[in-house]
């Protein structure tokens, strides 16, 4: 394998015990400076994959290189050159904000001052609380501190395991803005998330489910691969609508999407035919309009093809 990529993974598999296949022959590459998303639900294998790349877990089969270093042989080099933010808050709750940061700088043989430039944007928001114990911070602030600690040694690759799980929409948005700015500083970022709507914020994404990668592409490519005619339908009775649409002869799939049902069709038909069918089922206030497929539509389609 050429070593120009920031992350290279080939045919990686991991089992827990006899029955749990956490990763099944997973392969992908992440280019330098890329913001790459690993998108999938709980149990998809995201954490396992990130832990293997962080050299905290050994794979059963396959190869993985981080910045050209092999995860098994070169684990020391990898550990000193990557930043890793685990899914669970893992800073020292009894140390203050400042002490945590100082601690992580010291164990990586650097100082806060040396790489302050990299974390300044984020750290200024924490500065008013720098004497506060990490355990007493709000969720959004903890997350910012964890990111600062993961960045303090200026890593070449940043591994973020579900950084936005459980945080409110404002903190989520701020977090993604921070990642965008880090990307401009040419740090490669691999970030996992169960939230499909975050896919559009990545350069490329891998959709992952039950240890298998379903698709790897730019977000726009994933969405445009959804090739069924798609309509958004609503009526006065959402619950009956879902069931009635599933029984309609031209229906490929019908899933609720907010106030609408996304109706994917086997073949293009006139909306009037659907309107007439629903009116016949005593629906009122019928609205039918073309819909743009989302990452979730694409994900569900790939899941059901499996």
């Amino acid at each position: 394998m050429a070593t120009t990529q920031a992350i290279q993974v080939e045919s990686l598999s991991k089992r827990y015990g006899k029955n749990v296949q956490a990763l099944n022959q997973v392969s992908f590459e992440v280019g330098r400076g890329e913001l790459f998303g690993l998108i999938g639900p709980d149990g998809a294998g995201k954490t396992t994959l990130i832990r293997i790349l962080a050299t905290l877990l050994l794979a059963n089969e396959g190869q993985a290189l981080v910045n050209g270093w092999e995860v098994r042989r070169d684990y020391r080099k990898i550990r000193s050159h990557i930043g890793y933010m685990p899914g669970r808050f893992s800073l020292y709750q009894d140390l203050s904000v400042e002490e945590n940061l100082h601690f992580f700088a010291t164990i990586f043989g650097t100082t806060i001052e040396e790489n302050y430039e990299l974390i300044r944007d984020i750290y200024v928001q924490l500065e008013p609380f720098r004497k506060r114990k990490a355990g007493k911070l709000s969720g959004g602030m903890k997350q910012k501190l964890a990111l600062c600690c993961a960045l303090i040694h200026k890593p070449v690759v940043l591994l973020l395991d579900e950084p936005t799980t459980g945080v409110d929409p404002v903190s989520r948005q701020e977090f993604w803005e921070m990642l965008k700015r880090l990307k401009e500083k040419e740090i490669t970022i691999l970030v996992s998330t169960p939230y499909m709507d975050e896919a559009s914020l990545c350069d490329r994404v891998a959709l992952i489910q039950k240890g298998n990668i379903l698709s790897i592409d730019k977000p726009a490519g994933i969405v445009s691969a959804f090739d069924k005619p798609l309509l958004a339908v609503r009526t006065n009775d959402m619950y009956r609508l879902i069931h009635d649409l599933r029984e309609f002869e031209s229906t490929h799939s019908a899933f609720p999407f907010g106030e609408y049902v996304h109706l994917a069709l086997r073949n293009a038909i006139w909306p009037e035919a659907i309107h007439a069918y629903l009116a016949g089922k005593e629906h009122t206030d019928i609205e039918i309009k073309p819909a743009q497929a989302t990452i979730e539509d694409a994900f569900m389609e790939l899941m059901t093809q499996e």
Partner: peptide, 15 residues
């Protein structure tokens, strides 16, 4: 945290 199909099954139970 659940996959999009399971999430929708859950919402269908709510409906």
């Amino acid at each position: 945290g659940v996959d999009p199909i399971t999430r929708r099954q859950f919402w269908e139970m709510i409906y």
